[in-house]
């Protein structure tokens, strides 16, 4: 089968661009990625026709020289489906923006929680080792050790409380529109969660 190299090359470039865009966070970029990737793959489908021929009309063309119409039909179906999905994604991005102020795809909550918990646990183990390795601890040292542990526990709780209260907008317009790094978000949200919900800190005192 003879395939047009330019068709394949274009398809590859489109797929690469679309793939990269799919890996970003904001839904609108993902949407663009989906559109571009979809077009790239439609080109691949068209490339499966082989050598280009005459238009597949019923009359006036010898059947041996027409292009295979089936891939065109498949590509057409795929275009319609991509259109529908794109419309849905667009609506989702808009709705997401309405609710949270950003159209960012959030991390899996459980993943974040597991990461944080692992961090806190290892830090605590380190603290304990330091505390125990020394000689008889003074009252001051013991107090400091307890203080550190309390800080760690607070961190874990603050994170949990923040997640429980919904992932609201950070309030920073720049970040909300352009999509900040999740770390930035977490930091800003942290400060806000603390002053908005002082109960969290008081409750475990």
């Amino acid at each position: 089968m003879i395939v047009s190299a330019s068709l394949i090359a274009t398809a590859v470039v489109l797929c690469a661009v679309g793939g990269i865009l799919l890996l970003t966070r904001p839904l609108t970029r993902i949407l663009l990625g989906a559109v571009i990737l979809g077009n790239g793959i439609n080109l691949l489908v068209l490339a499966s026709t082989g050598r280009a021929g005459a238009a597949p009309l019923l009359y006036g063309v010898s059947l041996s020289r027409v292009t295979d119409p089936l891939p065109q039909a498949i590509a057409l179906t795929a275009i319609v489906i991509t259109l529908a999905t794109t419309a849905f994604l667009l609506a989702m991005a808009y709705r997401s923006h309405q609710i949270t102020g950003t159209d960012e795809v959030h991390d899996d909550l459980e993943d974040r929680r597991i990461v944080l918990r692992a961090e806190v646990l290892s830090e605590r183990a380190q603290l304990r080792d330091e505390f125990r390795s020394g000689a008889e601890p003074t009252a001051d040292e013991r107090e400091r050790y307890r203080e550190e542990r309390r800080r760690l526990r607070d961190r874990l709780r603050a994170d949990r409380a923040r997640q429980a209260r919904g992932r609201d907008a950070s309030g920073n317009l720049w970040n909300d529109v352009l999509g900040a790094d999740p770390e930035d978000y977490a930091r800003e949200g942290d400060a806000k969660a603390d002053d908005r919900y002082p109960r969290d800190r008081g409750a475990d005192g």
């Binding site: 799919l22 989906a34 089936l70 891939p71 795929a78 489906i81 999905t85 989702m92």
Partner: peptide, 24 residues
């Protein structure tokens, strides 16, 4: 939903590629 939609979209693209290969 966004996770689900994106994953589904991607797998559909993969499926279409597989169809194109098979047909070719």
């Amino acid at each position: 939903g966004s996770t689900y939609v994106i994953i589904s979209l991607f797998s559909s693209m993969l499926f279409l590629t597989a169809i194109a290969m098979t047909y070719a």
